[in-house]
Write a protein that binds this DNA or RNA. Structure first.
Lengths: 218, 218
DNA sequence: ACTAATATTTAGATTAGTCTAAATTTATAT
DNA sequence: ATATAAATTTAGACTAATCTAAATATTAGT
């Protein structure tokens, strides 16, 4: 049987590892869960033992399929409860998260599937994040590559296609990360490069980069 | 801050001490919570320390006003969630209890008061038990057991005494539920069984059933 | 390549809740 | 009234999750 704490670790690791980078490191998990790195080390050993993730000393962790399954299920529950709270119980978008953090751990297949039906099978939560269906499948229609963006529109960076460390280091080095707000200034037809602006910085990225960076319209 | 385990102890003590007996004894609590007497002793010391109850060695415990307040609040949450599960999510009588056991511990004033409003301030849960309002007040109608009914009178089914899934499934199977209109046709003095009629069906129920089904005169 | 800085792990302690087994108190039965 | 049974408490140990401080490994800068 999985404990509540284990669920929270798995969820945090899922969110941290969602886009790109192969391994999630100890400090990141500690920060996400507001705990200490040593506690994280203890827990990931246990989770590795239970085969929810693969752990390489000093390197980090990656969720196994088993671990990912747990994580997606929690995400599904969290987001469905958020829809319920906003649509039926008059919660505002900023009030839902804390309560949903607790509701997401209630374990009942019937409860969550009936709630899903009661809400008429929503595909997105109140923050616009996709809700996985009963089988764990996301409906991800609203993310586009930077190469498909439109000039002078504003986007949030939501992920990458290429997950190689080369590409990720490039993004890191240029201070582009998840959540970075990007405005598209110009698209050069000659070489398909794109000029963007973020955090008061302007830069030109190649077609290669533009094809591998996912955005969501804000 | 009160822990989940503490809440469960307080709730169990509340239910055990509800009718009459001044003090609730250790073994009864242990049985109710499926734990050992020694664990109960440890916990009641802690709860006494925190002033949720008064504890006299070898005698037993009584909830303080502070403890009772916690208990009533949990009962309120439990019963409101039960109404939600049955009315909105198609749960049957016997399925609600287990899930409500978990939902009752979610701590959010707004959540429970909005849920109350969403359900239109119900006074009774699906088993006919009264739901305390925001201020902890119960609305108690005078219900009688089928065994105390009078021949040829007509009643509405308003609740059950025995909430075991065995009994609830028996009722479900025979299409007897909250609100079912029942006419008492005959009471057999020999074995105290009762012949009733409802929805054009006639049937004889045992004394055991008759004692555990609550009715209200229409 | 080597040192300094940073990240991670280990060792040992702590807290909440639980348990078993032994000791103690209260209740019961002749 | 006193022995025995039943209920309760104590003592000591265990597990899960956490922490601090020290040790070790990795990364980055020169």
């Amino acid at each position: 049987m999985i404990t509540l704490t284990e669920e929270n670790y798995i969820k945090a690791i899922y969110h941290l590892g969602k886009y790109g980078k192969a391994m999630v490191n100890t400090n990141a998990i500690a920060e996400a869960l507001e705990t200490k790195a040593s506690s994280v080390t203890d827990m990931v050993k246990k989770l590795s033992e239970k085969e929810y993730l693969n752990y390489k000393k000093y390197q980090g962790v990656v969720l196994t399929e088993k671990g990912k399954h747990i994580a997606v299920n929690i995400v599904r529950k969290h987001r469905l409860w958020e829809v319920f709270l906003v649509e039926k119980l008059n919660f505002t978008w900023d009030e839902v998260h804390e309560v949903a953090e607790h509701l997401e751990h209630i374990r009942s297949e019937k409860l969550i599937n009936e709630l899903d039906a009661f809400l008429e099978f929503p595909s997105y939560d109140p923050h616009g994040d996709p809700i996985p269906d009963k089988n764990g499948n996301f409906k991800n229609i609203d993310k586009i590559a930077l190469s498909q963006s439109e000039i002078s529109h504003i986007y949030t960076c939501v992920g990458v296609k290429d997950t190689s460390s080369h590409f990720l280091k490039y993004l890191d080095g240029n201070k582009i990360g998840l959540g970075t707000i990007i405005e598209v200034l110009h698209k050069e037809p000659f070489d398909n490069s794109v000029k963007i602006k973020f955090n008061a910085t302007e830069m030109v990225v190649s077609q290669n980069v533009a094809k591998n960076l996912f955005l969501k319209e804000v």
